[in-house]
Design a protein around this nucleic acid. Structure first.
Lengths: 200, 200, 200, 200
DNA sequence: ATCTAAACGAGACGGTACGTCAGGTCTTGGT
DNA sequence: ACCAAGACCTGACGTACCGTCTCGTTTAGAT
């Protein structure tokens, strides 16, 4: 059945103001005080929204943040991967786009979300599918596309190559022993290319 | 043996029983119910120890787990890195040793600890220095030793190589999209060796 | 009666069940184990009410008891002072009414409350205004009324007379060297009358 | 058996310094922060004495304060009651001596001790015998002595008269509705004399 | 000159209650 | 049907004292 577009649900429609306030408040609060002290109670209070409304639409603190994050980065995330001419250039472009997102508030959120995913398995599923897996899939597509253009063999384990690329980034992000900057990303691309057996 | 006359602590000595019970209880509880539902109150109760004593010696839940983890894996962690004849073999041996620790309860703990480190920066410092950095240092030593034996160039960025090795493991562990098994580790070593420019 | 339409509180209304349970629990617990071992935690647990709710409505252990006491003795306390024909008879009637309240559990509570007031000045204010001062005011009214009926001079210091009447009762109650019974009360009334210069 | 006065106990004798420090610390602390926040732990710490030593010699917080109080007021309390020529003068002198003790820190202590006595019956016994009853006995002696000198009848209930005298003082002290000063004491003596049937 | 025994400081220990915080659910009146 | 307000139960938090318990260290009389 195709829901008639003229069909209007009964009752008061969902307040877009409430939703916007919540997402905005979430971003503000994370920016101000970081991920740790962020609470559902705090979000509701800051957004001028009742806790009930919060729980009605988002099951978890992480879900709120996730949606806030998508809302914020919607444009950047949906942009199609441009073909930069070579696999190496594509990878570089892909990772530098991640840098933008991971820098600043979003990076703090990502760390918090990954932490959240470790203890809330229900949230973990959402997080992995909606966020991590998505970018990983794009990366794998990119790598496979590299085979066609020559340069790397199709014998490669592309899952492994993806982990080899994203793993170190997450590792530095979560562990904080070194910064994740452009130089690192460039170096990483080179390393991955070599690991993939690309001819110099 | 003459007890060192230079330093004798005053007051009632710390109860080893209390300490042992706490660490044992921590391992038991994580094994039984996972990291999430673990609480200081639960540990104290299960260990038959007062909360005060718990907080006297460990500032944080993470600190308790960290020590419990060390206690448990003390033997495995202190074993000197054997020289297996080649860098590749050394790496393989090193990572397989990690597999033992990360498998089962300890893996669950490690994930929980990494999550804890994201929100408690005080604990993060301890965790990074005492655990992550330590194994990372061993790995870097291993890699640098590989230069002397030939095989890889000393021009390599060893920090990067370390992240290239450990990153994917942590990434899979935390994200859970694929298992961390022997095949993965073997494949990872090969990839890292290639990235390091080792002659086949 | 129509509930005032001008003012209707928003949000979930206060649970009368919770309030009643708390007050009832308080009286029960004091009766069972006395004032000393009474704790906020115990009251909450016995009443089946959360500590949060307890602290929301009562700032102090003493405040809970005070309200419980009022609730219990509401009828007796609100009864108007009957005019018994003479000041002496009025005083006697007034003090014998106090005997009922002070006997048994309530006496134990009063002692506990007076003790509480010594260390918690915030509670002391409540206690004095709501309980002690109230009965003292009634007594003073009684005495002043005695002037009109003849018998005692209006030159008397009525504050002093009130203390002369209530002081010995509290003193015996708190110190416990002698019982506070009808004979004592009768003797006390006579003494106060004489001190007030009433003609025999 | 009469313990030989020459008998000297073995072992280290009790440290007078420790005792003095404790009593001094107690007075200081009460003066500084009042009775409420006074704790055994605080006394020990402030006095530079171990808790063990504290509990070795005093079973209760009240016991410490009681002894501190005696130590301080030793001279004033041991002074024999002078005969001032008339019962009225004697009473006045007696009560004014009490004023000195009850004013300032000691009054705060007395209130705290009376409160303590309400919940610790073991301490109550000590407190009543050692402090309250003692002064009450002196007062009764005084009153009975008044009979011999003429002025009041031996038919009086002297217990009642004592309570009539001390009750109001304690009542004001504990309740704090009015001050306990010289005017009040003078007025009180007059009232008691009248109640005792003394000829003007 | 030892020996013995009590008192001492330090401070760790198992407890109990404290007062607070956040989570997630619920019950109102109002839109 | 949705919303805000806000009361509710639950459970963990970290802290404060309690009174008890080892420790190693004095201190002085007894041997």
């Amino acid at each position: 059945l195709i829901p008639s577009p003229t069909f209007r649900k009964r009752g008061r429609p969902r307040s877009t103001a409430a939703r916007d306030n919540v997402l905005r408040a979430t971003l503000d609060l994370v920016e101000q005080q970081g991920y740790g002290p962020l609470t559902m109670e705090g979000i509701a209070s800051y957004a001028g929204v009742s806790k009930q409304t919060l729980y009605r639409w988002w099951p978890t603190k992480g879900a709120v943040i996730l949606e806030a994050l998508f809302e914020q980065a919607a444009d950047r995330l949906t942009e199609p991967q441009a073909d930069c001419g070579s696999l190496q250039a594509d990878l570089l472009h892909f990772l530098e786009a991640m840098l933008d997102v991971l820098g600043g508030t979003a990076g703090m959120m990502m760390r918090g979300l990954m932490a959240e995913a470790q203890r809330d398995s229900e949230f973990a599923a959402i997080f992995r599918v909606q966020f991590v897996a998505r970018r990983r899939a794009i990366l794998i597509t990119l790598l496979e596309h590299g085979v066609d253009r020559g340069g790397i063999s199709k014998e490669n384990d592309f899952e492994m190559l993806a982990d080899l690329t994203l793993g170190p980034i997450w590792y530095r992000l979560l562990n904080g022993h070194l910064t994740v900057d452009e130089a690192f990303v460039a170096s990483l691309v080179t390393a991955v290319m070599r690991a993939a057996g690309a001819q110099a």
